[in-house]
Amino acid sequence: MVKRDIKTLIFVDCEACGKSPSTGKLTEFSAVAYPSRAIFHGVLSGKGLLEEKEVFEKFERWILQVTNGLRPIFVSDNPAFDWQWINDGFWRTIGRNPFGWSARRIGDFYAGLVGDFANSSSWKKLRITPHDHNPVNDAMGNLEAFERLLNGER
């Protein structure tokens, strides 16, 4: 198997109060770059749009730095949840999303590797950093599991 250069993967995890940006608030999120493991941690204390804008501007600068200006690829345990918060935050605060319009789900990658479309959660056993709803730990654990998948573990 030929591996493409995948140095623009950004593993993201979000924590929020509420089920969606229309009914809740993003409280914090983290991103971990692959393979460098550089970490970004955004905390939103609820001080309003100026605080959010500052956090998302810093996040965009960090993304551009860790990807050397190449298009970043959003990767998450559950982009149906995480993506909506990040996409909303970028568009509302700075009017663009450096990730574009798509995201990748680790569970789908795993299901493809094992040839079982319904098996999209067993990869979680490969996390090293415990999943504890601290977005820094959760994003790092997801990256670790993904890296182990790339190295042939199932």
Rank of each mutant, 00 (worst) to 15 (best):
M1G: 08
M1V: 11
V2S: 12
D5R: 14
K7M: 10
F11G: 00
E15P: 07
E15S: 09
A16D: 09
A16N: 11
C17M: 15
S20Q: 06
K25C: 11
L26F: 07
L26Q: 08
T27M: 13
S30Y: 04
A31V: 09
Y34E: 00
R37H: 12
R37C: 07
A38K: 09
H41E: 07
H41V: 04
V43Q: 15
S45Q: 14
G46V: 04
G46K: 03
G46E: 04
K47Q: 13
L49C: 13
L50D: 15
L50Y: 15
E51P: 08
E51Q: 10
E54K: 14
V55G: 05
V55Q: 05
F56G: 01
K58V: 07
K58Q: 12
K58H: 12
E60G: 04
R61N: 15
W62K: 01
W62I: 07
I63V: 05
Q65R: 14
V66P: 03
T67A: 06
T67S: 06
G69A: 00
G69R: 02
P72N: 07
I73P: 05
V75H: 04
S76I: 04
D77A: 10
N78G: 12
N78T: 09
N78I: 13
A80H: 13
A80M: 12
F81E: 09
D82Q: 05
W83R: 01
Q84Y: 09
Q84G: 11
D88C: 15
D88I: 11
F90H: 00
R92L: 09
T93Q: 03
I94L: 03
I94M: 02
G95C: 00
G95N: 03
N97Q: 01
N97R: 00
P98A: 00
G107E: 06
G107K: 02
D108K: 15
D108V: 15
F109D: 09
Y110G: 02
A111Q: 04
A111S: 12
A111N: 02
L113P: 06
G115S: 07
A118D: 14
A118V: 12
N119I: 03
S120D: 13
S121M: 15
S121I: 10
S122H: 10
S122V: 05
W123D: 06
K124M: 04
R127V: 08
H131R: 13
D132G: 07
H133C: 11
N134F: 02
N134Y: 01
N134M: 02
N137V: 03
M140I: 11
M140G: 04
M140F: 07
A145N: 04
R148Y: 03
L150R: 02
L150Q: 00
L150W: 00
G152A: 01
